[in-house]
Write a protein that binds this DNA or RNA. Structure first.
Lengths: 338, 338
DNA sequence: ATGGGATATGTAACCGGTTACATCTTGATC
DNA sequence: GATCAAGATGTAACCGGTTACATATCCCAT
């Protein structure tokens, strides 16, 4: 009797419900356009047979995958984990899926990963920071794939961005140390290579110092990767010079943790001997002892906002290209007047 | 002249190189089967035109996506972040991509997410623990999709698993406290609901106590979620009873951090007043002060191993179903003889 | 010279959905 | 009753690759 080519998939459902494949497809994607009765009949068959639509086929013909790609430096960092988690929840709630990819701060790898994601048909792409391969931007523009740079605020750039103004925020953090009387201030910052946020923060620190007639002597400035080990090593380096600063501004909370741990090990009491200010306000920061004074950045909102932007673009809405996220200084126990 | 339907995609490349689509496809997927000369000519055209294969179309016809799905409770947890990062690196190195999904410890959500992933054509699936919806297992088996439960070792179960033997490991951790003379020992463990690992660890703790003639009075046992706040609350609860234990075993390092923080705030010195042992050995644990005595679990190896298993299955190899990962007790500064 | 195996390439069906277009119904309007 | 718009449903082309099968070529053994 039956054509053995129609034992599975949408054609099987169609045959069993006595309708055409078009109707089944419509019942699934645009229920309103199918009569109540048919819709119910089709749904019954679907439940009975356990039919699951073939996403690839759907993607091929509709040219939409309901999948968003994100490329971040590394997952193994509390800050990203938080943001990704938030983004993931949001996308999921909108029926989208997130594909995650990491570049290890290498823009060539990033380009490669982006090609990969595009080939897999992501509808939109979320990138970290503003430091990308030119070919990547060209690729995205030429294929008309919406994307956004997250973690920065760059209204003058042509490319969409969402995040805090890192330079201004860093300036604010440094000003706190200056306001409470510190005059000898060191900096532990992240490596600037392919990390525009790290650079912007350093610029902010420097500007605040300069505006107040101070400078940043090389022996008080160390650049390291975002790990506790490296941060401790940086602190060791700074503490080893003759003339130790009375405060240290850090480009990131993790770096601040490292500095505080190492200070404690050296017998330097925080904050009476050394004030430390961080950046990001990870969950840990308020639990530490002393609790870390830091610049709060609403990471979850930022990433969710990035998702909202992409989805809005996909739905054809005309939306602003740049979003500034508010930061705030959270003063806890790790800073004290000189 | 030209058929306007062939301005793009593989047919365009074929036309420009003067060969058939089949040859282009073969040059890409099975280079060895195409003559040196043609291969070069085709590659030139590909480079010139910037052709990127359409992954969806490829997936549809080849029925392989080179994509692996993973469902974890939450990304926002250092333990998972580490494992995912490791898995991601491995898969990426093998030309596979990872799609990540979270279930928030809810097996219905997990089933839903799994359907989603399957509909997107994942070639294999990696799940956390052994606590899943029966329909999920059925679905995977009926579709012949390789999968593995990670973070547990369960040689008696029919389903593949890789991880430490949580019960034995917890037993080991508790034995350490007993060996150094503690007789009044509390436990802060994770919620057991839909978390077989938490249960196994608790069983291990209990067995060690029982074997040594002790029990776990209710007022010394608190179950909480995996957050610092909850862990501190748990510690507060235990410290509030008349008779405070001299040691606390924790189901997880994060819980141990919370207990230590709270102890310190109460003026209890660790380890002289209170010994604390953790579980997992996150990166933080060795940096804390006092550094945390904990049960080291090689998370990165475990997840990478899960990836290796799936890929081996996909390549048709016949491989063992269960892999035990070694744990080890790392004695640092947070435990001391009574 | 002939047959057979190995290698290289082309033809076109196929994967499983979506959707433009055609067809048919129904109800309202004149 | 005729006309027409709106709504419901069916037909089949199409998305962009892969690959089974057919065909062509070349080399070597008989």
């Amino acid at each position: 009797m039956g054509n053995d080519k129609e034992k599975t998939g949408i054609r099987a459902v169609a045959k069993l419900s006595g309708v055409s494949t078009a109707t089944v497809s419509r019942a699934l994607n645009n229920p309103h356009s199918v009569s109540e009765e048919l819709r119910a009949r089709i749904q019954t068959i679907i439940d009975q047979t356990g039919y699951v639509p073939h996403g690839m086929a759907r993607a091929l013909s509709s040219n939409r995958t309901r999948t968003i790609g994100a490329i971040i430096p590394t997952i193994d960092n509390a800050m990203f984990a938080r943001g990704i988690s938030s983004l993931q929840n949001f996308l999921s709630s909108q029926g989208y899926m997130l594909i995650l990819s990491t570049n290890g701060y290498d823009i060539d790898v990033e380009l490669e990963q982006a090609r990969n994601l595009i080939s897999r048909g992501v509808d939109g792409l979320i990138l970290r920071g503003d430091c990308h391969h030119q070919m990547l931007r060209d690729l995205l523009v030429s294929r008309d794939i919406p994307f956004i740079n997250v973690g920065i605020y760059n209204p003058n750039q042509p490319h969409p961005s969402i995040g805090v103004d890192n330079e201004a925020a860093a300036h604010r953090a440094m000003m706190h140390l200056i306001e409470i009387g510190h005059r000898r201030i060191g900096v532990v910052s992240a490596l600037q290579r392919n990390n525009d946020r790290a650079s912007a923060r350093l610029r902010g620190f420097r500007r605040a110092l300069a505006e107040n007639g101070m400078d940043l002597p090389p022996q008080w400035h160390v650049e390291v990767r975002y790990t506790l080990d490296d941060a401790r090593e940086a602190a060791r380096q700074i503490f080893s010079v003759e003339d130790v600063p009375t405060a240290i501004a850090c480009g990131n909370d993790v770096l601040a943790y490292g500095v505080m741990l190492e200070a404690e090990r050296r017998g330097l009491h925080v904050p009476s001997d050394l004030s430390v200010v961080g950046f990001d306000d990870l969950e840990w920061s308020r639990h530490l002892r002393p609790a870390l004074t830091t610049l709060h950045v609403p990471t979850d909102l930022t990433w969710k906002g990035a998702g909202e932007y992409i989805l809005a673009r996909l739905e054809g809405h005309k939306v602003p290209n740049h979003y500034e996220v508010d930061y705030s200084l959270v003063i806890r126990e790790s800073t004290a007047p000189r």
